[in-house]
Design a protein around this nucleic acid. Sequence first.
DNA 1: CCCGTAGATGAAAACTTTTTTCATTGACAG
DNA 2: CTGTCAATGAAAAAAGTTTTCATCTACGGG
Lengths: 130, 130
Amino acid sequence: MSLESAVGKMRGRGYKVTPQRVAVLGALAAEQHQSLEGIRARCPGVGMVTVYRTLDLLGSLGIVRRLDLGDGARYELAADHHHHMICESCGDISEFEECPLDSARIPTQNQGFEVRSHSVEVYGRCAACL
Amino acid sequence: MSLESAVGKMRGRGYKVTPQRVAVLGALAAEQHQSLEGIRARCPGVGMVTVYRTLDLLGSLGIVRRLDLGDGARYELAADHHHHMICESCGDISEFEECPLDSARIPTQNQGFEVRSHSVEVYGRCAACL
DNA sequence: CCCGTAGATGAAAACTTTTTTCATTGACAG
DNA sequence: CTGTCAATGAAAAAAGTTTTCATCTACGGG
Ligand SMILES: [Mn+2]
Ligand SMILES: [Mn+2]
Ligand SMILES: [Zn+2]
Ligand SMILES: [Zn+2]
């Protein structure tokens, strides 16, 4: 999800493209999995309320995804499907693209559950901490 | 994790077995995946602070697990390894035992990451909502 | 049993985080 | 350019969580 397409999506839905919204997008583009505090630090001129509202808006547009990985909320630009490896020692979050789910082993058919999405998180120790 | 073994674990670690702690354990045993509000409703005589502290204690003893599935925190007695299917329409959370993860496809070896645990959540529509 | 004591409880206060309110500002269509 | 309505942000309110501290009680030892 490039910033240009994100801005286009906002315009297309009739939302105004303000400097504050662009600044929050820029903060999100700078690094994945930031906390609200981290995002705020990257756009000091933007009011806290506006950051909250912008994250909500971008979330409703599917541009931003919110993660709950144990320590407070984190945000990422919704790029392609991927999963997370979280180091329980240093807190580092890394991504991997290959989906380790074996769909055949998701017991949904017999229960009549229609799968729309999934998430996988792997916890452990990263190379640096070992 | 039976209530008896949970109580035994508390005693063994030198924690007192108070009526409040037993009440919170009972509330947790009544239903999996409750919110704090739900737990509190099941032990009305127990002060809010004590519920918070008891959940922390039980968490540190490995008796209780905290879940973050999008809407606030939920708690469950840490039973055997299992995963969750969440209905995005009604919010219902169901469990399944069969682990759909293909360990071979977790790209950890090449990155030197040591896996200690994982979580899998499946989102979609439950049979009742379809 | 009954004490003594260290750990546990809970009301109140303090903090933290998030949402609402509302007066002012500014993006952008015409 | 201009007018309008969405967007912003300071302040206040609400919601959620933790700390403080006086009081209580579980339970080991006598
Ligand atoms: Mn990610
Ligand atoms: Mn469960
Ligand atoms: Zn690490
Ligand atoms: Zn449902």
